[in-house]
């Protein structure tokens, strides 16, 4: 007997939640307990009184599983609202990465040239290395890192995706 895998789609989910102790564990644990995937997860509070946080989760799964994930998240007591950005029309998603590249001579110049094409900023430099700051979609960052790997990539730090619906948020 062999175990069959199912085809899956990538979805960006946006949640507002009460900013209380254990909320992240509750959400991350729901994903592990029910066998859902988390590709990335970001969280920060978004109201002046720090009472509410926005959590952006990139997940993947068959459409039915995505529906279940939405319903299960919605069922958690501290969750206010769950939106599937991927399903809800145009939205903007961005990720930020810090990319450290080492190299000298021609490599160094090529790194700067590529950074320019990708509109990455140099935020730190030594004689033998740069740290670039780049924002964009996950794809763009993947591409940038892929190219830098060929030049002399040393380390990467990524924030994971944040996203918002374009225009006025539907109720």
């Amino acid at each position: 007997m062999h175990i069959q895998e199912e085809i899956s789609e990538r979805h960006v989910l946006s949640l507002t939640v009460s900013n209380e102790a254990g909320i992240l564990a509750r959400i991350a644990g729901l994903f592990t307990a029910r066998g859902y995937n988390i590709d990335s997860l970001t969280v920060a509070d978004i109201t002046p009184d720090h009472a509410i946080s926005r959590i952006t989760i990139v997940t993947s799964g068959p459409p039915k599983v995505i529906d279940q994930i939405m319903a299960q998240l919605d069922r958690l007591v501290p969750v206010h609202k769950v939106t599937d950005l991927t399903e809800n029309g145009p939205f903007v998603e961005r990720e930020l990465a810090l990319v450290k590249v080492a190299g000298t001579g021609e490599d160094r110049i090529e790194a700067l040239r590529l950074a320019d094409v990708f509109r990455a900023k140099v935020v730190d430099t030594t004689i033998e290395s740069f740290i670039f700051e780049i924002t964009g979609t996950t794809d763009k960052i993947d591409n940038f890192i892929g190219l830098m790997r060929q030049i002399g990539l040393v380390e990467v730090g990524r924030t994971g995706v944040v996203g918002l619906i374009r225009g006025k948020e539907p109720n």
Binding site: Q68, A71, Q72, D74, R75
Partner: peptide, 10 residues
């Protein structure tokens, strides 16, 4: 419970 809807059977 909305999460019971379409969980196993559509």
């Amino acid at each position: 419970d909305r999460s019971s809807i379409n969980k196993t059977v559509d």
